[in-house]
Design a protein around this nucleic acid. Structure first.
Lengths: 120, 120
DNA sequence: GACAATACCTAGCAGTTCTAGGTATAGTGC
DNA sequence: GCACTATACCTAGAACTGCTAGGTATTGTC
């Protein structure tokens, strides 16, 4: 998977995951791998700076928590803000513009070579 | 439109345009604006280095031509190669993976705010 | 006591795109 | 003949940014 595509999808992907409910870094990492069938292969070093940026931009708020079994490792949970939801909606719109343009082109090409398509 | 998204879509967009038939820089620029309803706003300085890279990678071949009215300005026409078609197919597949992941997330969100959706 | 999994963090390198500036021809209006 | 716009292409290197690589620490388990 090329870097630029990974980079461009990172923010909407994480905001989208947070829109499902608050979550913490390590779990987000697993969720991304799951969503992309392991094709994205993020490292934690890629994710944490992104989470910090979302926080800096006001798109998410962070809070330290300890899971119920009080002995466990503390986690930093991120919760999406209203501003973050708006940003996500805008980015979603932009993706639609791009994918629309690409689909106009691919429309007349041979059928897609993808393994699993339209799984929604 | 954020830079990273523009950058990530540039190569598949141009390869897609070339898959319609050979074309030259200035006209590709117009086609991109048309396809994106003017939202992409590429400059020629962005396009030419990309075309050169496609050529260097063997995804396209270039040839100077003068349009039929022999007085006109010469143009450098690019034609997609077989290798370029394969690259396009692969990138198309990758986009499908990403958009699939995003759609999984957006699936349960509020309806898309996009102006014109699914125009295919 | 050693290893793996969980969990988080950051400096600064590395890699790239795009900005800004350049060249040149054809056509149009005056 | 002159000025302006549209057409048409090119490139160096600044500017930006993401990621690599390395670091800390706890819990469980063999």
């Amino acid at each position: 998977m090329p870097k630029d595509l990974v980079a461009a999808s990172a923010t909407p992907l994480v905001l989208g995951i947070l829109s499902e409910g608050e979550n913490y870094g390590y779990a987000i990492l697993k969720r991304v791998n799951q969503l992309s069938s392991g094709e994205l292969e993020w490292t934690d070093g890629m994710l944490y700076p992104l989470l910090h940026r979302l926080e800096r931009l006001g798109y998410a708020e962070a809070a330290w928590k300890v899971p119920s079994g009080s002995r466990a490792r503390r986690r930093k949970y991120y919760r999406i803000t209203e501003s973050g939801r708006q940003a996500l909606a805008e980015q979603r719109r932009q993706w639609t513009v791009i994918t629309g343009a690409l689909q106009d082109l691919w429309h007349e090409m041979s059928p897609p070579p993808s393994p699993a398509l339209l799984k929604g």
